[in-house]
Design a protein around this nucleic acid. Structure first.
Lengths: 235, 235
DNA sequence: TCGCATAATAAGTCTATACTTAATGGGCCG
DNA sequence: CGGCCCATTAAGTATAGACTTATTATGCGA
């Protein structure tokens, strides 16, 4: 009823072969490639196997697939960079340094107007504001300036004196979406003194807003000490 | 989608249900969840459908799966941010501005020692160096400072006076790997004049090395004018 | 000739089944 | 008691077949 038990063509091998054809331009950019059934017959496997392989290549940005339209090689493959958003403690520990944490501010404050708008909060809303410093060895590593939705993260339930809001949130408030942005900033006097660097230094800043289905959970700005690099591998 | 006539349970619906259970802590962090066959029976679908759903959640970082070990909920879900590495022209055009391009330098130069090491080239190797400015409207947008492997990108074959190396490479040299890093830098005099900003301004810099299986293809530093933000959505 | 209904098509998906592979844990032997 | 081998287990994968759905092409009528 089924084919030979051993000779199976794996979806990885189909993927590899398809990628080879793309790289060698046997299937040039923009070209329509044979349909699944044809490739399956050619390589001697089931259509589902080809489907798995081509779907994977499509996810990776090498192919564009459309029902009825067939599959074509992407004209200009969009490369994706993937960053893992780690817990800062892990990031520090992974670099070999010992991790330090200090809570600097934890109080209720009125949201700045622009931020309130981004968070879908009426102007003047008071949220919990937490500022903390993460350090690597004796050096400041990253300043965390965070606003928290007090409904979801009341002061009595979450205490950030010993460990950061970062970790508490990861474990306690699953989020469903948000935005992330990176930018370069000049350190002002306050920031420079907290990060232990000269005023005017260029620092790397990450802004992140996190939401659940219903409401915004938190908005945070992470400002890293000068010299920080965010690195990843292209696959 | 959830048609009554077509009673089939889709893998998306299984995924959604599993995610719901993770979010509601019905399956708390660290817990072992039922095995595929059990879930399949419970939801009334084939095991392959459950497999597809759980595999997807594992890829997204919600689950850890191991043969024989079963599937458990990730203790601290690692969130991933995905950035599309666009062609700079597209990035500018998408913002609504008109794109401008100017080639500033194109000559053979000796690789700096540290870069040569990164690129697996013997010290003193001469590569093609290209410097170009991308602009949005009348404003400088991004300075591209690039080194190219002259074997793969000889000057006679690739002319960058009219369009950038960026686009030529995407279309002509498929790459298989590389590294990417982001950082904040202070603009020195040369950079400031080219980007049309004040000296000492904080600028966002992207460094990228691109390789084929055999050899390094190119190393590039993209320095964006002050105010640039790299943004993405968290899913 | 234009516009719309319809047929054709290729990918998307579900199912049932069977086999493979990586771990795990227990039992046997030294 | 310790270590190794093997049975067991749960995920991983392959397959054939059938059905769904988005999209394109076509042909008919106004």
């Amino acid at each position: 009823m089924s084919g030979p038990a051993t000779a199976s063509v794996t979806w990885q091998s189909v993927r590899a072969e398809a990628l080879r054809r793309i790289r060698t331009r046997e299937w040039p950019p923009g070209a329509l490639i044979p349909k699944e059934a044809e490739i399956a017959e050619e390589l001697g496997c089931a259509r589902a196997t080809v489907n798995r392989a081509l779907r994977d290549l499509a996810e990776a940005g090498y192919l564009d697939r459309r029902r009825k339209g067939g599959t074509r090689v992407t004209e200009t493959p969009v490369r994706r960079a993937v960053f893992d958003i780690a817990i800062i403690r892990h990031e520090v520990e992974q670099s070999g340094a010992s991790y330090g944490y200090a809570l600097l501010v934890d109080r209720m404050e009125r949201l700045p107007e622009d931020l309130a708008a981004l968070l879908d909060q009426p102007p003047g809303t008071r949220w919990r504001r937490v500022i903390a410093l993460h350090s690597a060895g004796k050096r400041p590593f990253c300043l965390e300036d965070r606003w928290l939705n007090p409904v979801l993260v009341p002061q009595k339930r979450a205490d950030f004196t010993a460990s950061s809001a970062n970790e508490w949130l990861v474990r306690n408030v699953p989020f469903t979406g948000g935005e992330l942005s990176f930018q370069a900033r000049k350190a002002d006097t306050a920031l420079a003194s907290r990060l232990g660097c000269a005023r005017g230094n260029a620092v790397f800043a990450v802004e992140r807003i996190t939401r659940t289905d219903d409401a915004a959970v938190t908005a945070v700005t992470l400002t890293y000490a000068p010299g920080y690099r965010l690195t990843t591998t292209l696959g």
